[in-house]
Design a protein around this nucleic acid. Structure first.
Lengths: 207, 207
DNA sequence: ATCATTTCTTAACTGAAGTCAAGAAGTTTG
DNA sequence: CAAACTTCTTGACTTCAGTTAAGAAATGAT
């Protein structure tokens, strides 16, 4: 099977595929490389990009939809992250090769993703050192942003986290059951229920 | 002032400086570059590597000692990280240039650090692309490890975090007052006191 | 439409952290 | 040494999340 061919000819998929190779940042040679090597495809709701225990073989970029990242802790699903349109799903490549994944990536809605295998990445860095330099800076930025997010998360209450999530990722609530959101916020579903109750009554304090 | 000269001729400083340029990973050319460009120095307890609001101009590596990272939140110092021997203190260079630092780095003991300015880093990546590639992989690894740490932190109780800290960084307790450790663990000093009380009585349950 | 299942809410109770206040223990300074 | 300050602990009380259990509401299946 040849990468670069999309698995389906869906119009939406083709449009996102096109966006990959029509920007001002990359040279024609680089774009040709992408066109040849990057697969774009649609994934159905409920399907998995990665399951716990599997060995990851690629990086992904999410063009459309929502992916939930979680791991099992004492038999419970602990939701760690919700990825939405524009996010990248990347990991430490060297470790991913050696260690089975601790987390699962589940599509909680229909998703459109690009797939960029580690082999292709390696080849890219060899052929286009400029891109490795850009990736290094991009990862530094992501890491730095993640640290800031973690600090914000840690210095806020579950109630503040909930209100913040509504503001920053409202689309989530269309797809994801509240008990997954509760897990993400660091509380049990019952507590999220009470938080919602408190906010309801303080928002409209029956006169 | 020329980098590459140490600010003092302390034996310990010289030893760590030597370790920078005597390894099996770097070529002679690279080592010469390090010898010429990297400053190693001793910093006194209580001094700051970086203060909130300043613009960071370098990366640091901690050879010896302990550095506390914190930021001000509602007038309170929130301790985010304790760096110990072997840790690197790095940030997103592009952002650091533009934005004043939100955090401070305070030496809570006498420290020996290496200083690697962003200009030197830039020059290094130009002259030794191989090192940029290695740095990219190193950052990926650090990012990945940090994610794992955050997940462990979030899925444990303050009590478990305290016990874990005693195991993983016992040297901290020599230098750092408990209320900073409490902040790091995500609780108030009074709560850490009670946690310690609980552990004391369960460890030696007076018969 | 009815039944079954999943998801969400409510209530009563427990346990741990936050707050405020007081004071003990330890450290620094004159 | 004594006074002043910093750091740590304890107690009483409040608040909020966890737990268990029950049931309501929403969703899916036949």
């Amino acid at each position: 099977m040849k990468f670069g061919s999309t698995t389906d000819l869906d119009q939406e998929v083709l449009a996102f595929r096109k966006s990959l190779i029509s920007n001002d940042y990359n040279t024609q040679e680089e774009k040709d490389f992408f066109a040849d090597k990057i697969l774009v495809k649609k994934v159905k709701k409920g399907e998995f990009i990665l399951r716990e225990g599997q060995f990851l073989k690629a990086s992904y970029h999410l063009f459309k939809g929502c992916i939930r990242e979680y791991y099992l802790k004492d038999g419970e699903e602990k939701t760690v992250e919700f990825y939405t349109a524009g996010d990248s799903l990347t990991v430490d490549v060297n470790n991913a090769h050696r260690l089975p994944s601790a987390v699962s990536w589940e599509c909680v809605s229909e998703c459109i993703i690009s797939i960029f295998t580690f082999e292709v990445e390696k080849e890219m860095f060899l052929r286009f050192p400029r891109l490795e330099s850009m990736c290094r800076m991009e990862i530094e930025k992501q890491y730095s942003n993640y640290k800031t997010e973690v600090n914000n998360f840690l210095s806020s209450s579950p109630e503040e986290r909930y209100e913040n999530l509504i503001k920053t990722k409202p689309e989530l609530f269309q797809f994801v059951p509240l008990y997954h959101i509760a897990s993400y916020l660091g509380v049990k579903p019952e507590s999220l229920s009470r938080i919602r109750g408190r906010l309801r009554s303080s928002a409209s304090p029956k006169a």
